[in-house]
Design a protein around this nucleic acid. Structure first.
Length: 175
DNA sequence: GTAACGATCCTC
DNA sequence: AGGATCGTTACA
């Protein structure tokens, strides 16, 4: 029996909200990653970070519209993938409406911790940039019915953004 | 064209 | 505490 039917696919409207609502709401949601072989991996999201608009000095979109950041200006419900430190792919979910550049960094799973390690585990790279979470046959997000308790803490690795943005409690960790 | 810098991870 | 490693960005 296929227990996918117990899960409800997250719909478009979920992603069109503000990133500060979506980021904590993604905790406890399930990512289902499918390969052409028929292999499938299911994981639970346990840690996220919100990056909110052109004003947020830690958000890549604070640089404005560039080839890299353009995806964040698009309508929510797609992925933003980018490489950091020349070796780690970062998995981000774009949120909000068109021209509001926001994204949620997926930072931890029940199976793997760390944003670089989890993309390696799920085999996610540049080819997933702009992937549509509603339409994709490779990756999709499902509601589990869970709404776990969480802590809101400062974001990691953004010293360059200055004290004000560095101290925003926009990292959400499932208890 | 060049140079500097990361939303990290691993090993010392 | 320091090195790996390369796409993106800024600037000449």
């Amino acid at each position: 029996m296929d227990d996918t039917e117990a899960l409800k696919m997250i719909d478009k409207s979920f992603y069109l909200r503000d990133v500060l609502e979506v980021a904590p709401d993604l905790l406890g949601k399930t990512i289902i990653r499918k390969w052409p072989s028929g292999c499938e991996e299911r994981v639970l999201i346990t840690e996220t970070e919100a990056y909110s608009g052109m004003g947020d000095k830690a958000c890549h979109a604070s640089k404005g519209r560039t080839n890299r950041t353009e995806v964040m200006f698009m309508e929510g419900g797609i992925l933003y993938m980018y490489l950091v430190y020349g070796m780690h792919w970062m998995l981000n979910v774009v949120t909000s409406v068109e021209d509001e550049p926001q994204a949620v960094l997926i930072r931890g799973l029940n199976t793997v911790n760390g944003p670089g390690r989890l993309t390696r585990f799920l085999e996610l790279d540049k080819s997933f940039n702009r992937e549509d979470l509603i339409m994709s046959d490779r990756i999709s997000l499902y509601d589990t019915g869970l709404s776990p308790d969480y802590d809101a803490l400062p974001r990691i690795g953004i010293d360059y953004a200055g004290e004000y943005w560095k101290n925003k409690p926009w990292r959400f960790v499932m208890k």
